[in-house]
């Protein structure tokens, strides 16, 4: 058996901490590569982690207009959901649908974070979160398409299928593209990042600073790690198996994402929805062709 039978808390906690640090470094690398492409020196790689820790010692002030327990609880929910996703995905190799659920709850949390503060900017961000959810939902049809191919949605089962039959990337390339767009839309500064676009100050994050922002950034780092992990597992599971290979692959994908983010402008909300729909339809076409 691959993992020890007794998963104790220390084991899982260490995995989560590793994912946190590695994800933070990846996001730092993302910013660095973007800066180099645009001809700037860029921040140090550790900058994103530093930001997260920095917010821990900054003063937290809660707006007078906010709806109170929700304002804090929804940010904690965002964190909790990705911890669950990490436990189900990389550690237990459980059902992919649970990770899809985590993604859906992440969307709900974005919406709630925006609504709870009472500021018009965050409200706009949360409206865009609803709008972009409708675009990303078709992409989440990816699990269905993968299921028709592999007859299982357990991540361990998908890995086993790929070890026997070769990577899904070669069998369902357009579905992989759709999933890649899904990962891209969760990357900071991405063309589809309409939720936190700078045209609406910072989108749903505008009113969140201090400790709460630190917690939120933790959740985002874990989300980035978990989504990258899922992408690699589902489409390259036959080739990439060892943890070190996973890390190298994640770094590679981050560099590709940074290239895309640096070279594309942010698209308008309705265009973002439209483009993501096109990729989802392409994925369905791929399945119909096979």
């Amino acid at each position: 058996m691959y993992y020890p039978v007794n998963f104790n808390l220390i084991y899982i906690l260490l995995e989560i901490i590793t994912a946190f640090i590695f994800g933070g470094l990846l996001l730092g690398l993302h910013r660095k590569v973007m800066a180099r492409i645009q001809g700037r020196p860029g921040p140090p790689i550790v900058q994103h982690l530093l930001h997260t820790f920095k917010f821990y010692i900054k003063e937290l002030s809660i707006p007078n207009t906010s709806s109170m327990p929700l304002y804090v609880a929804i940010v904690l929910a965002m964190d909790a959901v990705w911890i669950l996703a990490l436990i189900v995905g990389p550690i237990l190799g459980g059902s992919f649908l649970i990770i899809i659920m985590c993604y859906a709850v992440h969307k709900v949390a974005e919406h709630g974070i925006g609504l709870a503060s009472g500021s018009p900017y965050t409200k706009l961000g949360s409206t865009r979160a609803v709008l972009s959810a409708t675009a990303e939902m078709p992409l989440i049809a990816v699990p269905a398409l993968v299921f028709f191919k592999t007859d299982t949605l357990l991540l361990d089962g998908i890995i086993n299928y790929q070890i026997v039959n070769g990577s899904l990337f070669t069998q369902l390339p357009l579905v992989a593209l759709a999933m890649f767009v899904l990962v891209l839309s969760k990357t900071p500064y991405s063309p589809f990042g309409i939720v936190w676009g700078k045209d609406i100050v910072s989108g749903y994050k505008t009113e969140h600073f201090g400790v709460i922002r630190g917690v939120m950034m933790m959740g985002e780092i874990l989300a980035f790690f978990a989504l990258l992990w899922c992408f690699i597992t589902i489409f390259f599971g036959g080739i990439i198996t060892a943890p070190l290979a996973y890390m190298v692959a994640m770094t590679g994908i981050t560099v590709i994402l940074a290239f895309i983010c640096a070279l594309t402008p942010m698209v308008a909300p309705y265009h973002a929805v439209m483009i993501q729909w096109i990729f989802a339809i392409l994925a369905v076409v791929n399945v119909l062709l096979i």
Partner: peptide
């Protein structure tokens, strides 16, 4: 799993407040 999912975010939040 329940402990980790429930208490890690909450305790990070309160530890953050104390650090602040």
């Amino acid at each position: 799993i329940a402990i980790l999912v429930v208490f890690v975010p909450i305790s990070t939040y309160y530890v953050g407040l104390v650090l602040m």
